[in-house]
Design a protein around this nucleic acid. Structure first.
Lengths: 113, 113
DNA sequence: GGCATATTCAACCATTCGGTTGACGATAAT
DNA sequence: ATTATCGTCAACCGAATGGTTGAATATGCC
């Protein structure tokens, strides 16, 4: 049976889904707007959003004909704690993270290490 | 192209591989010993170890005919930092982590949240 | 040398994954 | 009422995943 950790880590293993989460960090978005920057069909993005929803990483709120996607970062907590058990990773350094995101944005296929 | 984050998150998405990492937290192990507690073939475990090695999460050192597996927790750093950018998850609480591992050990298919 | 142990390789299998396309059901706009 | 927009569904596709088995390749032991 799939645990939370399975579904969360699996959801995070895809670069498109990570990029979606990064976008949602800035603001809630409608499905169509989430899909806009990607070079793939709306249906494909819709599937990615289902996977993120199943993992609890986002929630979807349908208002009228538009479905709003909202980041739910708490779903990462268990996974984050699990990983931290393997090493004392520095408490988060937001400035470093901003630089990291900027680098990932500039070079999405580059090495993220 | 697969980035570090892809391969690390994908490697962590499998419960067998997470359990292997947990075992290696205690000590370095030979492949056969890693495989012993699992109800699957040695070849299957060998494949899991390849995936963990490719992700950089373990290293393998062949001495004689036995190949020793060693945890490389630094490979989790980038992924951990990435996740922490989505929320200020508490700095690691080792005691809580021990309880978490005990629970996961007692109920490996249980919800890890 | 000859046998046992440690590990991987190769071929195979069923399932899942990430994508496509086209049709469809709701809701909104004119 | 008609038409356009938002999003999902269903069927399909090729590739990857997680497992199996049996043979092959080291290496160590007697």
């Amino acid at each position: 049976m799939a645990t939370d950790l399975d579904t969360v880590f699996a959801a995070l293993a895809d670069p498109t889904r990570r990029e979606i989460l990064r976008m949602l960090l800035e603001d809630d978005m409608a499905v169509t707007d989430v899909a806009e920057p990607f070079e793939m069909s709306l249906a494909a993005i819709s599937k990615h959003l289902v996977i993120l929803t199943r993992a609890g990483l986002i929630s979807q709120d349908k208002r009228g004909r538009v479905k709003w996607c909202k980041l739910e970062p708490d779903a990462m907590r268990a996974a984050s704690v699990w990983m931290q058990g393997f090493g004392q990773f520095e408490p988060v350094n937001l400035e470093a993270f901003e630089r990291f995101l900027a680098r990932e944005l500039a070079d999405p296929d580059g090495d993220a290490a």
